[in-house]
Simulated assay, not measured.
Amino acid sequence: MSADSFFQSDWAAESFAAGLVARERSGHTALVEGCFLYVWGGYVSIGDNEVFLPNDEIWLYDIESGVWEIHEMQGDVPPPMSGICGSLLNGEMHIFGGCDDDGHTNQLYRVNLVDGEYRWRKVTSSGGTPPTPRDKLSCWVHKDRLVYFGGYGRKQLTELDNSRSFIVDEASWVEEIFWGWNNEVHEFHPSTATWNKPHTHGLPPAPRAAHAGAMLGSRGYETRTNDIHCLDLESWTWTEIVSTSPVPVGRSWHTLTAVSDSALFLFGGLSVDCAPLSDGWIFDVQKKTWRELEHPHKDKPRLWHTACLGKDSDVIVFGGSQDYILLVDTGHCNDALVFQTRPYTLLRLCEDCIGRNAKVLQEQMLCLPPKLRQAIRKRIYFFRPSSKSHGGSHTA
């Protein structure tokens, strides 16, 4: 038996042979459940048009092997859209808001990612008032609740008040409909299908969209420009965190990912000078310090991408644009970039070493236990040179 025989009659062989890879996109949603990254929605630029991607399909990326597969979706399928806010709760993807062909929406949908059916269900509220239509917002998951923050969207004249929670976009005002940015906090309880707008304390962040959020313990963190704020989801108290070290350049359209109990990983975005960024930073919430992370993707700027926590504190960045997002013919991407944020275990180092050197070590692989051999098989796929000829779908 040789290393290549590992792939005979294997689940990945057909996907590899077909060259399956999710299409490039921006404004999509992506979540990690188990060993898969699930990707849905978003848009691409075709000529002078922004085209939403199909709404009745979901892409699965095996984070161990780097192999893509696609599944059809059924049920109450949401309309094609971008700018949606996706979150994972008890094995279900919840998506809220976004922008479709009819404009901004405030609909909520959910789909089970683990039963293999991929059947969408539209969630009907049984109580409370949902947020007004919006996109480019963030969500924290805490104690089986979905907590939404911020976004850009529309309000009726009767929905405006004298608070500072909504800034009107003067360029988009139309009669009695106002578009703008908000810093509202809304809470959804899936168990009762009810909405609640908690009363927060402290000084909240300025109204915003295209920001980035992450969850650590009972606190939700969020950042835009070069600030960072924290909302305690037990006391509903806002706190601005003042860094004791130099801070990253201000930005939007970036991502923030929790990579440990006390650390957040920031990547990419669009600078305040409208320059696409490719830098990565680690923020220690206890020491209140930023540290720039060296990584191999400095030549791959990204904005309006997604970032998810994978195995061994890896962060998997997918999609997004490498150009200024407001250009119609923007450079959408479909690379899955892997960022190492912590030292790997000895087992992970060995698996990756074998994966990179499969031909040299093919005789020794025959001595591995079956379970470990299966894991090694996936790493061989991940590092297989031919993977780059199948769309370049991942980069470690």
Results as ranks from 00 to 15, higher is better:
Leu347Trp: 04
Tyr38Thr: 08
Asp135His: 02
Tyr152Glu: 12
Trp290Gln: 01
Arg379Ile: 01
Ser165Ile: 06
Ser278Lys: 03
Ile380Asp: 10
Pro276Ser: 05
Glu187Met: 14
Gly250Asn: 04
Asn49Ser: 14
Phe52His: 10
Phe265Cys: 11
Leu372Pro: 02
Pro78Thr: 03
His254Gln: 15
Leu203Ala: 14
Gly250Asp: 08
Ser65Cys: 05
Gly250Ile: 06
Gly392Tyr: 01
Leu146Trp: 09
Leu231Met: 09
Leu113Ile: 06
Cys367Ser: 11
Arg23Leu: 09
Phe318Ile: 07
Asp48Cys: 15
Ala30Pro: 04
Ser172Tyr: 02
Leu326Ser: 06
Pro276Ala: 05
Gln286His: 05
Leu349Val: 02
Asn182Lys: 01
Ser9Trp: 12
Asp352Gln: 11
Gly41Ile: 13
Tyr109Pro: 06
Leu231Thr: 14
Trp11Val: 12
Ala209Asn: 05
His295Pro: 02
Ile177Ala: 01
Gly269His: 00
His297Cys: 15
Leu31Val: 15
Thr341Ala: 01
Val44Leu: 12
Asp101Trp: 05
Met215Val: 13
Asp56Asn: 14
Gly66Arg: 07
Glu240Cys: 13
Leu303Arg: 10
Ser5Gln: 06
Asp312Lys: 05
Gly116Val: 11
Ala171Gln: 07
Asn90Thr: 00
Ala17Thr: 08
Val21His: 07
Trp120Leu: 03
Ala258Tyr: 15
Pro276Trp: 05
Ile63Pro: 05
Leu346Asp: 08
Trp195Cys: 14
Arg291Pro: 00
His332Asp: 10
Asp62Thr: 07
Ser125Cys: 02
Asn182Leu: 10
Glu175Arg: 02
Val242Asn: 07
Arg219His: 11
Ser126Gln: 11
Arg119Asp: 01
Gly86Phe: 15
Phe7Asp: 04
Asp76Glu: 12
Gly320Asn: 13
Thr225Ile: 04
Val114Thr: 13
Gly392Gln: 05
Trp68Ile: 01
Asp102Leu: 07
Leu108Arg: 04
Tyr221Val: 04
Val328Met: 05
Ile241Lys: 05
Asn226Gly: 03
Asp169His: 06
Phe382Met: 09
Leu337Tyr: 04
Gly127Cys: 05
Val317Ser: 12
Gly269Cys: 02
Arg251Trp: 01
Asn334Glu: 03
Asn226Gln: 14
Cys333Gln: 13
Ile376Pro: 08
Ile167Tyr: 10
Ile241Phe: 00
Gly280Gln: 04
Ser26Trp: 09
Ser389Thr: 13
Arg219Cys: 15
Leu309Asn: 03
Ser243Arg: 12
Val328Gly: 00
Ile58Thr: 08
Asn334Trp: 07
Tyr43Pro: 00
Arg23Gly: 12
Met365Thr: 14
Met73Asp: 02
Val328His: 05
Thr257Ser: 13
Ser165Lys: 10
Gly220Ser: 14
Ser2Ile: 13
Leu309Gly: 04
Tyr148Trp: 03
Thr341Lys: 00
Asp314His: 10
Met1Gly: 03
Tyr109Asp: 09
Asp279Lys: 02
Leu372Thr: 07
Gly151Phe: 00
Ala307Asn: 11
